[in-house]
């Protein structure tokens, strides 16, 4: 069982190793790809939720920051970045 993006440590860059495209709707998957979230890309989780919830998750992808829900992050497997 590989670690998933929803439980990744904040502030530490990780590489996306696999995305479970089948679990998400067509539109969800497309929007993720439009944000540049796809296999092989490096992302850094930055902020997670507020007082009342662990949702949502803010990520840095390159020079862009995007917000996704924990449910989607749970479908994204990550691995440590290559040294």
């Amino acid at each position: 069982m590989n670690p998933k993006l929803d439980s990744a440590k904040l502030g530490v860059a990780v590489r996306i190793s696999r995305i479970d495209w089948d679990q998400m709707s067509h539109d969800e998957g497309r929007r993720l790809r439009e944000f540049g979230l796809m296999e092989g890309i490096e992302v850094t989780p930055l902020h997670r939720g507020s007082l009342f919830s662990r949702d949502p998750l803010a990520l840095a992808i390159g020079r862009m920051q995007v917000i996704i829900r924990a449910r989607q992050a749970a479908m994204i497997e990550v691995a440590p970045t290559a040294p």
Binding site: H47, L51, S53, A58, I67, R69
Partner: peptide, 19 residues
């Protein structure tokens, strides 16, 4: 405003809405 939406999303998700 997007930051405000980020902060409120958790609360709004509980009633089926989004930030």
């Amino acid at each position: 405003m997007t930051r405000a939406a980020f902060l409120m999303d958790g609360v709004m998700a509980k009633v089926g809405l989004s930030g």
